[in-house]
């Protein structure tokens, strides 16, 4: 899917190069929610009942190019934050796990308006994902003592990349102009795509206890997890014209 999107986008870009023109720059800010459907079964370790990892964030886009007065190129910077909690069963019972992601991406969106109020887009992005993982063994540990180290914690930063396609809605500019609004527009969007986060390994430190607690000789490696998957994006946009 993602390779197909990439190919299409590249072809459109090449064909349109001859008709490009610098656009009057305007800024857009979108508040977006992105639903990540994780494909790796390992995600169940951090999930309650579903393989979905929801993230929330903001995109800041700047329109810089118009192509044949139809397509618009908008580079953007995006940030997303998401957190998931799980209760996997270990040896003596259930423990609580937490996973948080901070995605900081840059990308480019190509958009076209079919109607004054309806358009479609395709975008590519890449960036870094900061992944924080925790597992707390005290949540179901009947004999927890003050000296027991119980918190497994690991942070990793990995590359990510992805692509989405979607449709956008906005208030018709003609309508806004009739009401004397020429400097703002409001809209929303809905899209689907794929995001690849590089595989990460959960090889945690062991924390907790007190100053007298014994250190461990070997670390436990919980294994690898791949937080890639299909993404569904929904949001609201304010354009500053």
């Amino acid at each position: 899917m993602r390779y197909l999107m990439l190919t299409i986008l590249t072809a459109v870009t090449i064909v349109s190069i001859s008709a490009t023109a610098l656009a009057k720059p305007h800024v857009e800010i979108s508040a977006l929610g992105t639903t990540n459907t994780i494909l790796d079964d390992s995600f169940e370790f951090f999930a309650i009942d579903t393989m979905v990892h929801d993230t929330w964030g903001v995109d800041v886009r700047v329109e810089v190019l118009e192509i044949k007065d139809v397509l618009h190129l908008l580079p953007f910077v995006a940030y997303r934050y998401g957190a998931s909690t799980g209760y996997p069963e270990w040896v003596t019972g259930t423990v609580q796990t937490d996973l948080a992601t901070h995605d900081l991406d840059v990308g480019a969106r190509m958009r076209g308006w079919f109607l004054p109020w309806l358009g479609a887009y395709a975008q590519l992005f890449t960036g870094i994902s900061h992944i924080q993982m925790e597992a707390d063994a005290t949540s179901d540990y009947a004999y927890n003592t003050i000296g027991s180290r119980h918190l497994y914690r690991d942070d990793k930063t990995k590359w990510n990349l992805g692509a989405t396609v979607g449709m956008e809605l906005r208030i018709s500019p003609r309508l806004l102009k009739q009401h004397g609004i020429t400097r703002f527009n409001f809209g929303g969007e809905m899209g689907v795509g794929f995001m690849k986060r590089m595989t990460t390994n959960f090889n945690p430190s062991l924390e907790g206890g007190d100053d007298l607690s014994l250190d461990r000789a070997d670390t436990v490696n919980f294994g690898d997890i791949d937080l890639s998957g299909v993404v569904f994006q929904f949001g609201l946009t304010v354009s500053f014209l």
């Binding site: 459907t37 169940e44 979905v52 799980g86 069963e89 309806l118 479609a120 449709m167 299909v230």
Partner: peptide, 29 residues
């Protein structure tokens, strides 16, 4: 226009595939 309607359809199809397999629902005995 009609192609843009594929987007929510794909979205709904994708959400249907979100059920976990229960990999960690049983203790390691």
């Amino acid at each position: 226009m009609k192609y843009t309607l594929l987007i929510p359809i794909f979205a709904l199809l994708g959400l249907c595939a979100c059920e976990p397999d229960g990999l960690y629902d049983s203790p390691i005995s």
